[in-house]
């Protein structure tokens, strides 16, 4: 565990908590893509199946359980409890265009052709693009609430911090995982446009509004 990975994990945790609290407090999931949240639930489920086979640490197990539970809770709030506030007219990204290629790619490029390993690989590929329905929704409505922007910033920072963690681990432990690294770069790059808007607008107290 190094500082980049710890802050990355905490940033990830913060993002999930921000989203849950936002939906709960406002009793609304307006502006949030249910499809991205469904994809994240699928990501955590397929990645953390090793909870039953491999013990890493109490920290690792605890965080995995939190991520799985929080993602299902978020999906529940969006599709069940606060369904009336869900922006389904704008949440129209075709998720099969993300799920199917991720799955095919995980069959082709993986560390080991075994069920758990392929599901892990699938989760890495899918996570890298799972935010696209959310970014698509923001681009369709042309704006995002500040709290949604904070959520996106925390979530985007997490993989960016993991990139630093992987650079550190490469030099300190000679450890690297090319599948995670390439997917992590893709994932972080997808947020770049948003990061720019966040720094130039949201941090200056303005609403994140896209040019018409």
């Amino acid at each position: 565990m190094n500082i980049f990975r710890l802050t990355g994990d905490l940033s990830h945790l913060l993002a999930i908590i921000i989203l849950l609290v936002k939906i709960w407090k406002t009793r609304s999931c307006a502006g949030i893509s249910g499809k991205s949240q469904l994809l994240f639930a699928l990501v955590y489920t397929t990645r953390y199946l090793d909870l039953v086979s491999t013990y890493i640490s109490a920290y690792n197990t605890f965080m995995k359980l939190i991520f799985i539970c929080a993602s299902y809770a978020t999906v529940y709030l969006i599709y069940m409890k606060f369904k009336a506030t869900y922006d389904h007219n704008h949440d129209t990204f075709r998720v099969e265009f993300l799920i199917l290629p991720s799955f095919v790619l995980s069959l082709l490029i993986n560390h080991d052709f075994a069920v758990l390993e392929i599901l892990w690989t699938f989760s890495i590929y899918l996570e890298s693009v799972a935010i696209l329905p959310q970014l698509f929704l923001v681009s369709k409505t042309g704006e995002a609430e500040s709290i949604t922007s904070h959520y996106l910033f925390a979530l985007g920072s997490y993989r960016g911090l993991y990139l630093l963690n992987w650079i550190y681990r490469y030099y300190a432990e000679s450890h690297y995982d090319l599948i995670a690294i390439v997917a992590g770069v893709v994932q972080t790059v997808l947020y770049c446009d948003f990061f720019y808007l966040y720094v130039t607008k949201v941090l200056k107290g303005k609403k994140l509004q896209l040019p018409a």
């Binding site: 090793d50 890493i56 690792n60 991520f67 560390h111 000679s174 450890h175 690297y176 995982d177 995670a180």
Partner: peptide
């Protein structure tokens, strides 16, 4: 290296 390691990250 990238072989044989359990995935120890989140």
């Amino acid at each position: 290296s990238s072989d044989g390691n359990p995935h120890d990250e989140l």
